[in-house]
Lab assay of single mutants.
Amino acid sequence: LLPSFEIGAWTEDDVYCWVQQLVRKGDSSAEMSVYASLFKENNITGKRLLLLEEEDLKDMGIVSKGHIIHFKSAIEKLTHDYIN
């Protein structure tokens, strides 16, 4: 489970856990499981996660359009939940 809904306070480890949970919950393929490490390697914290754009995801090595859409949708939901 994630430490809190205060996404802005999430550490790199918290984001890593979130990506792992996202991959487990989704209908995503096994190749998506490597993405948790990509987020950690790129020092993505909660604040940075909320700022990620499609180009950032591509720069991190996420090239599948479907996977990018999956992440963007999940990040938008997080942003919405965080604001409300």
Rank of each mutant, 00 (worst) to 15 (best):
L49D: 05
Q21P: 02
E76D: 12
Y16D: 09
L78C: 00
D81K: 10
N84T: 12
V19N: 00
K72V: 07
S28E: 13
L2S: 14
S28G: 13
I69F: 09
R48F: 00
Y16S: 07
Q20T: 10
E31S: 07
S37F: 00
E41T: 07
N84C: 11
I7L: 07
L78M: 11
E6W: 04
I75S: 02
R24D: 14
K40Q: 02
V23C: 12
H67M: 13
F39C: 00
H67T: 08
M60R: 05
H70R: 12
M32A: 12
G66W: 07
E53P: 04
L52A: 02
F5Q: 13
E53M: 02
V63K: 15
E55L: 02
T11L: 00
T11A: 02
S29D: 11
L78W: 00
T79M: 08
A30Y: 10
W10N: 02
I69G: 12
W10L: 03
G26C: 13
F71K: 00
G61R: 03
Q20L: 08
V19F: 05
A30D: 10
K58V: 08
I69H: 13
S73A: 12
G66L: 10
F39M: 05
S4F: 06
D27Q: 01
S73E: 14
Y16Q: 10
S64A: 09
D56N: 06
Y82D: 10
T45D: 14
K58R: 14
Q20V: 05
S33H: 11
I62A: 02
I68P: 03
G66H: 13
S33D: 10
K72I: 09
V15A: 02
E55K: 14
F5H: 15
A30K: 15
K40G: 02
L51Q: 15
S33T: 08
Q20I: 01
H67V: 07
L57Y: 07
R24T: 11
Q20A: 06
S28K: 12
E55D: 08
S4T: 11
K40D: 03
A36S: 04
N43M: 08
L78S: 00
G26H: 14
S4C: 08
Y82L: 05
L2N: 15
T79N: 14
R48S: 05
W18N: 00
L52Y: 02
P3K: 14
F71R: 02
V19G: 00
